[in-house]
Write a protein that binds this DNA or RNA. Structure first.
Lengths: 337, 337
DNA sequence: CTTGGCACTTGGGTGTGTCGAGTGCTAACC
DNA sequence: GGTTAGCACTCGACACACCCAAGTGCCAAG
C-alpha cells in the first residue's frame, strides 16, 4: 500500500469529483484512470484516506468526496498550476491594454477574472495604498468654502469640500498651502496625520484657525485613502452552481456585499512564498463562507493589493489558480506603466 | 355577479397569495375574508377573473394565483399605498441625517431601502447631472504632467491626469486656467464641450498646444460626469426568495451587475402623475427580468434621478411602494440642503 | 501487498394507493 | 338574475413498498 499511489488516488478523486460533481467510487476510478491496480486495492487505499480525514462518504455506501482537508492536501502537494492557453493569455493582454485609466483597468480586470474562472471575482482596489503625498491643493470656491485635494504618488486623488468658520482670503490660503505642502510633501499617507499635527503646531497663530480646519480635512482624506474599495463581478456565477453550496447562496451574497468582510478576508489570507493563497471551505473565518473557497493573490507594487475569486469548495483549483496568477501578473505590469 | 365584488375577490387573492405564496382557493378565501357570500359564488367570480386573464390556476384543480395582468390591475386600481409606521419614518430620517457627504448619503440610502423592503435596492446616482461648472483647477505635478480638476455646482468633483507633449511652466498654466475658467465658469456641463471649443479657438497661438491637451481632458471629464452610476444593496434578499423566481436567480444577478441594463431600465420606466412606477414581471423589457418586478421613483431636483427596488412578482406592492416613496422623499429633502 | 469474490448497505427511481383541496356544473332558491 | 348547496371529478402531494445499481467492507487466496 504505497504512499505515492494513495496520493495519486486522492488526486484522481478530486479531479473526478470536480468534474462530475458526484461521489466517486472505486470502480469508476480504475476505469477512468490508468492506476494499474484493481478496484479492491483502491478500496483499501480509500479506506486509509478516509481514516486520515482526507475524503468522506456522504452516505454509508456511496462514493467518496474530498473533505476540505483533502482539497488542502491536493492544493498544497499534488496539483500543478496549469499554464493558461495561448489565446487566453492574448485575450487578457489585449483587454487590459485597451483600458483608459486606472478605474477602467480595475473594472476590466474584475470582469475578466470572473469570465475566465466562471466564478465571482473580487479586486481590492487601494485608492492610495501605502503611497505618499505627491501634491496638495486648496481651491477657494466661496469665501467660506474650500476644496481640499490630496494627490498621492499612486496617481489616485481624493478630495473633500470644507467650510471654514470665517472668511478666508486667497493670499492666506496660498500661504497655508505653501507651509503645509513643504511639511508633508513626500510623506507616506500612513504617517500623514502625525506630520500634519506638527505642521499645524508650527503655524503662526493667525493661520491656526483655518489651518486647523484644512488639516483635519487632509487627515480625513488620508484615512479615506486607506479605506480600500472592493470591486465585484460575476455574482451570477454563484447561481449557476446552486447545489454546490450546502446552504443557500444567501450568506455568500451577504458577505460579498459587505466590503468590510471582503477586505478583512483578503487581508487575512496567508500568502506563501508562491504568493498565491487558497482558503478552502471551513478554513474561511466568516461562517457564511464555509462551503466556499477563495483563491487570491497580490498584485501591484509589493503585491500589496489583492485580487482573487470566490467559488464553491468543489472548484477546479489548478485552473483557477493559474487564472488568478496570470491576471495579477498582467495587471501588475499594466499598472507599472 | 357584481363588478365591485369581483375586484374585491382579486384583491383578496393577491393579498393572500403574497402572504402565503400558495395558490388560494375559494374556500380559504371566504374563511379569511368577510365577503358575505359563499364559496360557490366566489368560484363563479373566479371563473370570470380567469377568463379575463387576471388570475390563473397552476394546475387543473388547484387554487388560483394572480397573473401579471392581475397584479397590474391590483396596483393600478385596488391597492392603497400604506403609510409607513412612525418608527420606520423616524429610522429613515435619523439614518440619512447622520450621513457625512453625498457619497455616504447614497450608500446609506441604498442599504436602507434594501433593509426596509427586504428586496434588492437600486439607486441611480447622477454624479454631476445637469449641473454646471463651478470651478476648474490645473495642478502641475511634474514638468509634463498636469492634474485637471473639474468641480460642478452639484458638489461632485472629477479629476484626471494628463501628460503634455512638452514641458509647461507654472505661469503658462496659470494663464491657461485664467482664460479657460473665465470662458466656461457657470456653463452647464452638457454645453461644456461647445464652450471649450470656442475658448480654445480664442487662445493665443503659444498656448494652443497645451491648451488643447487640457481642453480635451475637460471634455472627457464632462462626459464622464454624465455617466451615471448605480448603487446596489440587498442582493442576498434574492436568495431568500428562491422559488419565487420561475428560473434561477442567475439572469437577475446578471442584469443587476450590468449597470447599463439597470440604467436603461430605470430611465425607461413610465413615471405617472403619482411619480411612482411599477414594472410587473413580463412587462420588463429585459428577458432575464420576467418573473421580477421593479418599483421605482424619482428623487432629487426635478425627480431626475431614480431609485427603486427589484423583487419577485409576488411582492407586497403597497408596502414596497410606500417605502420607495418615503425614502425618495427623505433623500430629496436631505439633498436640498 | 494485491486481488477476486461475496454479503451487505443504501440512495434513487418507480409504481400504487390514499387523501385533501379545489374546481365545474347543475338544480334549487330568493 | 344572482346566489347557494350539493356532488362528481381532477390532480398534486404524500406515504409506502419495492427493486436496482453502485458501492463498500471484509476475507481468504494468490
Amino acid at each position: 500500500m504505497s504512499e505515492p499511489r494513495r496520493l495519486e488516488v486522492l488526486r484522481a478523486i478530486v479531479e473526478d469529483y470536480v468534474h462530475s460533481r458526484e461521489p466517486v467510487g472505486s470502480k469508476a476510478l480504475v476505469d477512468r484512470h490508468q492506476l494499474g491496480v484493481s478496484s479492491a486495492t483502491i478500496r483499501n487505499d480509500m479506506a486509509v484516506l478516509e481514516e486520515e480525514g482526507l475524503i468522506a462518504a456522504p452516505h454509508t455506501s456511496s462514493g467518496r468526496i474530498p473533505t476540505d482537508k483533502g482539497y488542502r492536501l491536493f492544493v498544497d502537494r499534488i496539483s500543478e498550476v496549469k499554464p493558461l492557453s495561448g489565446p487566453e493569455k492574448k485575450a487578457i493582454q489585449t483587454l487590459l491594454e485597451g483600458a483608459e485609466d486606472v478605474d477602467d483597468v480595475m473594472d476590466r480586470t474584475v470582469r475578466l477574472l470572473a469570465q475566465l474562472t466562471n466564478q465571482v471575482a473580487v479586486v481590492q482596489f487601494p485608492r492610495v495604498g501605502g503611497a505618499s503625498v505627491r501634491h496638495i491643493e486648496f481651491v477657494l470656491l466661496a469665501p467660506q468654502q474650500i476644496l481640499v485635494v490630496l494627490i498621492a504618488t499612486s496617481g489616485t486623488v481624493q478630495q473633500r469640500m470644507v467650510r471654514t468658520p470665517s472668511d478666508i482670503q486667497e493670499s492666506e490660503l496660498a500661504e497655508l498651502k505653501q507651509r503645509i505642502l513643504s511639511a508633508v510633501s513626500g510623506v507616506r499617507l500612513t504617517n500623514l496625520p502625525g506630520e500634519l499635527g506638527s505642521a499645524l503646531a508650527q503655524l503662526p497663530a493667525g493661520l491656526r484657525t483655518h489651518g486647523g480646519t484644512i488639516v483635519r480635512a487632509l487627515e480625513q482624506l488620508a484615512g479615506l485613502g486607506r479605506e480600500d474599495r472592493i470591486l465585484l463581478a460575476g455574482t451570477a456565477n454563484l447561481a449557476r452552481s446552486t447545489g454546490d453550496f450546502p446552504l443557500s447562496i444567501g450568506p455568500i451574497l451577504e458577505a460579498l456585499e459587505e466590503q468590510v468582510v471582503m477586505l478583512r478576508l483578503l487581508s487575512e489570507m496567508e500568502y506563501d512564498a508562491r504568493g498565491i493563497s487558497v482558503r478552502i471551505g471551513s478554513e474561511n473565518p466568516y461562517g457564511g463562507l464555509s462551503g466556499a473557497s477563495v483563491v487570491a493573490t497580490g498584485y501591484g507594487p509589493d503585491a500589496g493589493a489583492k485580487l482573487g475569486v470566490l467559488g464553491p469548495t468543489r472548484m477546479d483549483y489548478p485552473t483557477t489558480m493559474a487564472a488568478v496568477r496570470a491576471v495579477a501578473r498582467y495587471l501588475s505590469r499594466i499598472l507599472e506603466e
